[in-house]
Amino acid sequence: MSYTLYVTMYTNGSVPVKEKYDGYPSYEICKRVDGGPLKTVCRFTQQTTSSLPYSEEHSVNKTVS
């Protein structure tokens, strides 16, 4: 498996995420600001193990406030 993940968290609650990853396994990144509710930043549902030979074929570049 191969992941490259850059996450920055700012005091105003914004979370920019830049990542590249294989299509396996599934994962979810969440944030919580000052004890508030969890908010999903990024969610990926796996494909199959056959995507493992292809290094970092998926990518995300987004900011969640």
Rank of each mutant, 00 (worst) to 15 (best):
S59M: 07
E56A: 01
G23V: 01
V60M: 07
L38V: 01
Y54F: 15
S59G: 07
C30N: 14
Y54Q: 08
D22S: 08
S26R: 00
S50R: 12
K39Q: 10
G13E: 04
T63W: 06
Y21V: 01
Y21G: 04
V33F: 00
S65V: 00
S59A: 10
L5M: 12
T4E: 13
S14F: 10
E56W: 03
S51T: 15
F44L: 09
K18L: 07
K20C: 08
T4M: 06
V41Y: 04
Y21W: 05
H58S: 05
E56Y: 04
P25V: 00
R43A: 12
T40V: 15
T8D: 15
Q47F: 07
K20T: 07
T63Y: 09
G23H: 02
T63D: 00
Q46P: 03
T4K: 11
S51Y: 13
Y21E: 05
V7P: 03
L5F: 11
P16M: 01
M9K: 09
V60I: 07
S2F: 04
S26P: 07
K31R: 10
Y6K: 14
S59D: 12
S51P: 00
C42K: 06
R43N: 09
G36V: 01
T49N: 06
K62P: 03
K39G: 05
V64W: 03
R43Y: 11
S51R: 12
V64I: 09
K31M: 02
S65A: 08
S59P: 06
M1T: 14
S26C: 02
Y54T: 09
Y6D: 15
S14R: 14
V41T: 07
Q47T: 11
P25W: 02
T8Q: 14
L5W: 13
P25C: 01
G13P: 12
E28D: 03
Y21F: 15
Y54W: 12
Y21I: 02
K39P: 06
Q46C: 10
G35I: 04
S2V: 02
P25Y: 01
D22P: 05
C30H: 01
Y27F: 15
H58A: 04
I29D: 08
I29S: 03
R32W: 04
T48M: 00
R32N: 05
H58T: 00
Y10R: 13
V64F: 02
R32S: 11
Y6E: 15
S2E: 11
V7G: 00
H58G: 01
I29Q: 03
S55G: 10
V17I: 02
D22K: 02
M1C: 06
T11D: 15
V33N: 05
S51C: 11
P25E: 05
Y3D: 12
K31T: 04
V7Y: 08
S59K: 07
V15P: 13
K20M: 10
V15F: 11
T8C: 09
P25S: 04
C30I: 11
V64Y: 04
T11H: 09
T49A: 09
S55A: 11
V60F: 04
P16R: 05
K31D: 00
Q47N: 13
T40C: 02
G36Y: 10
D34V: 03
S2K: 03
S65G: 05
E56N: 09
N12M: 10
V60G: 01
F44E: 05
T63L: 08
P25H: 01
M1G: 15
S2T: 12
S50W: 06
